[in-house]
Amino acid sequence: MQQLERFLFACGLTCAAIFLALLVEREWFQYRYVRDLSRAVVLDTTSSPPKKRVRPADGDVLGKIEIARLKISAAVVEGEDARTLRRAVGHLPDSAYPGERGRMVLAAHRDTFFRNLRWAREGDVVRMETRRGWREYVVERTEVVNPDAVDVIGKTKREVLTLVTCYPFDYVGPAPYRFIVHAKARGAQWH
């Protein structure tokens, strides 16, 4: 009986330690980058021709995303691997950057940075801030799709933003669907 108790306690403690470590890693990363964008890369989205632009490397901090109404504020990092998504909102490397024509795709976990995305509705303002300035987007619609519905992040010539997270939000473990938020570009201020 005592051995069972010790075993359960050790396993529980290990899980709690892992959970805390993930939490601390995430919060520390956010603390470092959200309050101070001076460490972020300077996105080159204006040089011409566009195909000669220098692209950020995986792991580079691009800026931060804010949705004031939903109390979402998080650093955006280039990449979509597990480590990136653990610490920040990931920017799909093949998608557009703020200020570029095309679709910018940002992805994050539903139980961390995009927890409140479930309340997103038409008209919500999404602001993407970089070292060069900021770009605002307005939410047009949301949808729930299968993970293989890659059409939702397909090519476009409009400047749009697509946010991707898992669905259902209350699901424990790897959720079977994806929640998609579509937003179109509105205002911008660059310096």
Partner: peptide
């Protein structure tokens, strides 16, 4: 320009499923 393109056709959307919450929940349960 990469503004909208993908280097290779994607088969799935980004894997945003997280086990962090589940680990915490299991830990609390144990």
């Amino acid at each position: 320009s990469g503004a909208a393109g993908q280097s290779t056709p994607r088969e799935t959307l980004p894997a945003t499923a997280s086990l962090g919450g589940a680990v915490g929940l299991v830990g609390a349960g144990l």
